[in-house]
Design a binder for these strands. Structure first.
Length: 171
DNA sequence: GCGACAG
DNA sequence: ATCTTGTCGC
């Protein structure tokens, strides 16, 4: 049981996501940038604090160029389909501490592969104005064929029929 | 109606 | 995300 911070109704959140979706600009990236930043978040024991780390690497040497961390108190509760509202704040706080300006951001969670095409990576990318890709470990929505065992293999992600239905808001 | 549901 | 015992794979 987290703090009483989920003031926003599902409708308000959906409206926010729609706004994000409209601001996303999909574009092909032909070359691997020199500076890439990896983003991830974690929480303390009772989830009263969210912590994030931003690590910049030089893709030519694979060496760490810079790194920063940030903390946020009482993050909103997690809700399937609305992860960005919980994690984007800390991630952006960590990003704000970087002196370097990466040309590509890689963060946990989905981006376009989201019921509203407004996953965490979209929120982060729009907020930063930097090309961003989501790298989720688990499935959220849509479907795709089995991916082969070889490194680099891939399969196109299918239609995004909304499978995540907003839960009722307590208030 | 039942199951699914990033982190 | 986070906790934790038993089991599996290299």
């Amino acid at each position: 049981m987290a703090a009483s911070n989920d003031q926003l109704s599902n409708q308000e959140l959906l409206t926010q996501q729609r706004s994000i979706t409209e601001q996303v600009n999909l574009r092909p990236m032909h070359a691997l940038p020199q500076l890439v930043v990896g983003l991830d978040a974690a929480y303390d024991e009772d989830s009263s604090k969210a912590v994030a780390a931003a690590v910049v690497i030089d893709t030519a040497s694979f060496e760490i160029v810079e790194q920063a961390t940030a903390t946020v108190a009482n993050p909103v509760d997690y809700r399937p389909g609305f992860l960005a509202f919980r994690e984007a704040p800390v991630l952006l706080a960590a990003m704000a501490k970087l002196r370097h300006e990466p040309e590509l951001v890689v963060c946990d969670g989905h981006g376009i592969a989201h019921p509203a095409r407004a996953g965490l990576a979209c929120h982060v990318g729009v907020a930063l104005g930097v090309p961003t890709i989501g790298c989720a470990k688990n499935h959220l929505t849509g479907s795709f064929a089995d991916i082969g065992p070889e490194r680099g293999e891939s399969q196109p992600h299918g239609s995004h029929r909304p499978t995540v239905r907003p839960r009722r808001t307590p208030a």
